[in-house]
Every structure is written in C-alpha cells, then in structure tokens.
Write a protein that binds this DNA or RNA. Structure first.
Length: 215
DNA sequence: TGCCAGGCCGGGT
DNA sequence: ACCCGGCATGGC
C-alpha cells in the first residue's frame, strides 16, 4: 500500500469518527499566534483562561503587549503555566512583529512561507511546532504541523520509528499529501482529537480507536 | 492523588 | 550529537 493511501485512509477514519474540528480555536490570526505560544506543553483549557485574561484587559494587541511590563504580562497569563518563560517568549515574538513588521502579521506572512518561517524560527522560544502552527492556522499556508500526538499515534501503529524526528514526520505527510491548507488544518486537529481521546500514554492500544487494526 | 497537557531551551556528557 | 532537568497551573 502506498504511503499516500495509508495517510488518506487514516484521515478518512479520523474524520468519520470525530467529524470536523473547526481549528484553530481563536478569533483572529493574532490570537492564534498568541495561543500557539501559550499552549506549549499545556492543556488548552488552561490556555483559554490566560487568553480570556488578556482579552479582559484589552491586551490582545501587538502594541499593547509590546508596552506591557514583563511582570504584569506574566501575572495575566498565569493560568496557562510556565508563565514567566512564556511571557518572555511572547515578548520575543511581539518584538519581532512590532520592530520589523509594524505589528502586522499580514506583512510578516507576505514574505511567503519559507521566509516567514525563517523569521519566526529565529525568535527565541518559538520552535518548529509553534511556528508551523502559526503558519498553518494564522497564515493559512499549507504546512503540516507535527506534535507529540502525531508522533505517538504513528509510532503506535508502526508507521514510524520511535526516534523519528520532527522533520521526518513533517516530510512524510508533506511528500505524500497534496499541499492543501484545509486538509492539513483538519488532519492535525484530528490527530490531536484521537490522541486526547484514545491514544493516551501508557494505554498500549485501545479498543475504540478508529485506527485500530489499521493495516 | 498523581499524572498529564497541542514545547523549547540550556547545560552537561 | 544526544540527554535531561527546568519551567508551573489546573483538570481528571
């Protein structure tokens, strides 16, 4: 069976089981980018509280975040955990956005996928997953987002090695699927849904998993 | 109650 | 080039 067919079969099963996920859960591209940083190794529920705090204070704005002192920002996003380091990372991102792109995500994204990715990856605290999430869900670029769930699910169904890298996984999807933003959007969200609901740590293989007895 | 969550960095080997 | 500890809150 060709890799393309395998990947499409997985997508089909996940979509039929979970339905459309309507990602990213955020109103604006900027909110999506902020959420991408805050959700690093963190439950989305906690991130929602932090984002709600930012909204209440009217801080969900590049220039407001540019001005706010570290201490106050950290306190505001406290519920999402790792708040000191995340406040720094947000600041680093905001500094790039304001000082190099007039606070405009459109200007950043207008560089195109490759250049925008390079710019974002140069920011301390933004790794590949965070950056690719911004590019896919805020920038609408057709780039596949890999995360811990992607890794665990594919490994558990013997489709990749335990030690496969981010780049290898991303390449697997991108070399064998059409570069379709909506497909990549839904696919990643579905993998997260599957991981949260079924493919948990320590549970070797659960009976309800839609990918059970895959091939 | 303990374990885990949509990572990433930095220091030590 | 790996490997590992640190970062921290809140929900199940």
């Amino acid at each position: 069976m060709k890799k393309t067919d395998v990947l499409m079969e997985i997508y089909k099963r996940l979509f039929e089981h979970f339905g459309p996920q309507h990602w990213w859960p955020g109103d604006t591209p900027f909110e999506i980018c902020v959420g991408a940083v805050l959700t690093q190794n963190t439950n989305w529920q906690n991130v929602e509280k932090a984002i709600e705090n930012l909204k209440k204070k009217g801080l969900l704005d590049p220039f407001k975040l540019y001005e706010i002192p570290h201490q106050e920002l950290a306190e505001t996003i406290r519920p999402c955990g790792f708040f000191n380091i995340k406040a720094k990372r947000l600041k680093n991102f905001i500094t790039l956005l304001v000082e190099k792109f007039d606070g405009s995500l459109d200007k950043l994204f207008s560089l195109g996928l490759e250049k925008a990715r390079e710019e974002l990856l140069s920011v301390k605290g933004l790794g590949k997953e965070t950056v690719d999430s911004m590019l896919l869900y805020a920038g609408r670029f057709p780039i596949f987002v890999v995360d811990a769930y992607t890794h665990r699910i594919l490994n558990r169904h013997s489709l990749i090695d335990e030690d496969a890298s981010y780049d290898e996984l991303q390449e697997l999807f991108m070399a064998n699927l059409p570069p379709d933003t909506q497909l990549f959007n839904e696919y990643h969200a579905l993998l997260v849904a599957c991981g949260k609901n079924y493919c948990r740590k320590k549970v070797p293989l659960c009976k309800e998993c839609p990918l059970k007895a895959l091939f």
